[in-house]
Write a protein that binds this DNA or RNA. Sequence first.
DNA 1: GTCTATAAGGGGATAGAC
DNA 2: GTCTATCCCCTTATAGAC
Lengths: 189, 189
Amino acid sequence: MSDDIKTRLLDAAQLLVQTHGHNGYSYRDLASQVGIRTASIHYHFPAKTDLAVALVRRYYEFVGAAMKKIEAEHTSLAERLEGVAGIYSGCLSAHQRICVAAALAGEYSSLPKEVQDELNRLMTDSQGWIAHFLEEGKKRGEISPASDPVALARLWYSALQGALVVARATNPTVLADVTQVLRQLTIQG
Amino acid sequence: MSDDIKTRLLDAAQLLVQTHGHNGYSYRDLASQVGIRTASIHYHFPAKTDLAVALVRRYYEFVGAAMKKIEAEHTSLAERLEGVAGIYSGCLSAHQRICVAAALAGEYSSLPKEVQDELNRLMTDSQGWIAHFLEEGKKRGEISPASDPVALARLWYSALQGALVVARATNPTVLADVTQVLRQLTIQG
DNA sequence: GTCTATAAGGGGATAGAC
DNA sequence: GTCTATCCCCTTATAGAC
């Protein structure tokens, strides 16, 4: 049922946010993409803020599901981190997107409070999932016993978010470089 | 002569870009900050694009000067990288800003071509300066002879840019954590 | 649910007086 | 150099017909 109008609106809005930012698209852009009129969008999402909040919530579920899938399908830390990197490299390869989180965080002070709060939750918990993988890897001896999983997770998350942004504006190979160096430095460091 | 109107306009515009993004502020906002009318801004910067281009060029000079100062005042790689991190942590501590580069890159596809080009130059050369420090550190034996200065520079730059964005939207301590872990992993790795 | 019509204000930008 | 006045389009949003 991925062609119901609400989903199609969220899909189109997500692409616009990931390429132009929240302040960089209008209901008019969205309407022309989906093939309806702007007034019809207001039926589904009364205000643009409502759409943005729904967008971040849906993205939160998407990331959470991806993390659970990685945990279920891979046991080694190296493979799991590879999987995490894959979530974000998938953005860039499709339409030169960046992560929804970074796109919105770049305009942070101009966002409605509700969107800021959802964004905070998305970023905080994304780092939490990565920290969880690192914690388990530490127990298994895949990284140094002296390393700090929370701080390392912050590095991984920040570096991946930053790499997407930098890669899009400069050179696409930046993301692969960053991921590889990060892996080399992290595993059995 | 830092109180001439053109400088004050650029200062105010930079703060607005670093907090709200390019699409998140208007000439009206700018005018009220500086205390003149919107029409007067057009005298100095005919179009908003002209202002954005001037802003990125000035920021490029600022970063370049900061890098040269770091090179002149410090010789060890550790100190130089500390200095680089300081450039970016300075943003956050003043008004919760992020780097001009990341703020604009988040809205990349919505930017005028001229601004995209200036942004590309800023990000490419910023990484070049960091790579230069790493190259010299490699010659001095401060990092492993097997390490790749260009890839490492991409990691440092991406991680710092990402850390600012993540820190602002979640927890200010993220930046310090990322910087510290990065230093530990890089030096004599 | 989607449409047309429309409101009310914001946006960048220009003309011309001072 | 800065102002007032104004243009014209875009933007979000609502009312009400279908």
